[in-house]
Simulated scan of single mutants.
Amino acid sequence: MLKRIETHHAIAIRYLALPKRGGLTMEQIATEAGVSRRAVYDWLKDPLFDRELKKEIVRQTTARLPEVMESLTDAVLTDHNAAAAKLLLQVNGMLTDKVEVETKVSGDVDIDALRERIKQAKGRGV
Rank of each mutant, 00 (worst) to 15 (best):
L2A: 13
K3G: 01
K3E: 10
R4V: 13
E6D: 07
H8M: 05
H9G: 03
A10N: 09
A10V: 00
I11F: 06
I11T: 11
I11G: 06
A12S: 09
Y15W: 14
L16C: 03
A17N: 10
A17V: 12
L18A: 14
L18P: 02
K20F: 13
R21W: 09
G22K: 05
G23T: 08
Q28L: 06
I29N: 03
I29M: 07
I29C: 05
A30L: 00
E32S: 13
A33H: 03
A33T: 02
A33Y: 07
G34N: 14
G34T: 08
G34Y: 06
R37E: 14
A39R: 12
V40D: 05
W43V: 04
L44N: 03
K45Y: 00
K45G: 02
L48A: 01
D50L: 06
R51Y: 03
R51Q: 06
E52G: 02
E52H: 09
L53V: 06
K54W: 02
K55H: 01
K55C: 00
V58N: 01
V58G: 00
R59M: 12
Q60R: 15
T61Y: 09
T62N: 01
A63C: 04
A63V: 14
R64H: 14
L65H: 10
P66R: 07
E67R: 04
E67K: 04
V68C: 03
V68W: 05
V68Q: 05
M69V: 15
M69P: 04
S71F: 09
S71V: 06
S71N: 08
L72A: 12
T73H: 12
T73Y: 11
D74Q: 09
D74W: 03
A75Y: 02
V76S: 05
L77A: 15
T78K: 15
H80T: 00
N81K: 10
N81T: 04
A82Y: 07
A83C: 02
A83D: 13
A83V: 14
A83L: 13
A85V: 02
A85W: 08
K86H: 11
K86M: 06
L88E: 04
Q90G: 03
Q90H: 02
V91M: 11
N92D: 05
M94G: 14
M94V: 01
M94W: 15
M94Q: 11
L95Y: 11
D97N: 12
V99A: 08
E100N: 10
E100W: 07
E100T: 14
E100F: 11
E102N: 10
E102L: 07
T103E: 09
K104M: 11
V105N: 01
S106A: 07
S106G: 08
G107P: 08
D108T: 10
V109K: 12
D110S: 13
D110H: 07
D112L: 14
A113T: 10
L114P: 01
R115F: 11
E116P: 00
K119L: 04
Q120P: 01
A121K: 03
A121S: 08
G123F: 08
R124Q: 10
R124M: 10
V126L: 15
V126I: 13
